[in-house]
Amino acid sequence: MPSGIRVTARGKEARDAGNKKTSLSTDEKLLLDALRTRDIAHFLRKKCSTKEGFTEKRHVEYFKGVRAAKCLMSNYKEISRKKHAVYILNKLLEENFYHSAEKIKLSNGSKILRPILKKQFTVDDSLYIWTFEVGKWKQYMLGVGIILGFILFVLQPLWPPFMKEGAVYLFYATLGLILLLLSLCVLRLILFVAIFLLSGARVYFWLYPNLVVEEQFWASFVPLYSLEWRKSSAPKVVDEYSE
């Protein structure tokens, strides 16, 4: 019995020491409380790496807890330690800027996100779904632009001659751009296959490697090419975003 009591006491001492190590001082709390949670949420919404997914009802954006913590610690001088980040991220969780989630696999093999009840933010691979939306005005402007464009198209018979002529030039310019992009896709594929076969499946050459990647328009044309030498024709592919 005495030995059991000693073990319990040691366990309690270890927990107390851990709590002291991760607890914040009064000055630290005052400094962190002075930060506006909405401003931090807005910053994370734009700068923290996110992914897109689906719940049972809607399309969502989500992120990993460890990435949010690293983003704060590398950009806020007030949030220089892990416990500072956890304190702030817990406040955002309590104020419903995001909520916890987990990935589940459906019977058809697809994966969806399912919200779960979790009151504490953890700096690991735990997933969090954003409920805080930014950039709504862009969606509104896009909607207004589509409506105005439709109305303008319906009124085409009333257009003055210069507008009709401009529409023709715009159509041919758009068609030319589409044909140019398609030609580039075909050309890069032909070059890849030709060099791949001639090199004995050792050289991987891509013209405009980001052309078919989801990037901004101009970023799709940088760099001009990528060249990679491989020893085998069946290299091991590592997915850095696998979960």
Rank of each mutant, 00 (worst) to 15 (best):
T50W: 03
A69H: 02
S23H: 02
S3M: 08
K91F: 00
I88F: 01
K12M: 12
G109E: 10
D124C: 05
H59I: 07
A41K: 05
A101R: 01
R38G: 07
G65C: 01
K91N: 09
D124R: 04
E13C: 11
D33K: 11
H84F: 04
G53K: 05
G4Q: 13
T8N: 14
I40L: 11
K29F: 00
E78L: 08
T22Y: 07
K20A: 14
A68T: 00
S3R: 12
T55E: 01
S3F: 08
M73I: 12
G135M: 10
L89S: 02
K91I: 11
R6G: 00
F43K: 10
I116E: 06
I112K: 10
E61K: 13
W130T: 05
L106D: 05
D124T: 06
H59Y: 10
I104P: 05
K47E: 14
H59A: 08
K64V: 03
K103T: 11
S100I: 01
A34K: 14
A68F: 03
L32Y: 02
S126L: 03
V60E: 04
Q139G: 09
G109W: 03
I112N: 05
S74E: 15
E78D: 13
G65R: 01
E28Y: 04
E28P: 04
G109F: 03
S49K: 10
H84M: 05
Q139V: 10
S80W: 07
F63T: 03
Y87M: 03
K47F: 13
K103S: 12
R81C: 09
G135V: 06
D27P: 00
A17C: 06
F121W: 00
S80E: 13
K119V: 00
Y98V: 05
S107Q: 15
E133I: 15
G4R: 12
T8C: 14
L44A: 09
Q139R: 13
V60C: 03
I79V: 15
T131C: 09
T50V: 06
R6Y: 11
S23R: 13
L127Y: 07
F97S: 06
L89T: 02
N108P: 04
L127F: 09
S110N: 14
E13N: 09
A14L: 15
E102C: 04
W130R: 04
L44F: 04
L35H: 02
N90R: 09
F54I: 02
N90D: 15
L93M: 09
V60Q: 03
L35A: 06
G4N: 12
K12D: 08
K47V: 14
D125N: 14
K82G: 00
K118C: 11
R114L: 12
C48W: 01
I79C: 08
K51H: 13
K77D: 12
K118M: 11
D33Q: 09
F43C: 06
K138G: 02
L44R: 01
I112Q: 06
S100G: 10
L32P: 07
N19K: 15
Q120W: 00
S74R: 14
A34E: 15
T37M: 11
E94C: 03
W137K: 14
L92I: 00
Y76L: 08
K77M: 10
R81W: 06
E94L: 08
E13D: 11
F121S: 01
A85N: 02
E28Q: 12
T22C: 02
Q120R: 12
K20E: 13
I40R: 06
I112H: 08
I5N: 13
E56L: 12
H59T: 10
L93I: 07
R38P: 00
L127V: 15
C71L: 00
K83W: 01
I116P: 02
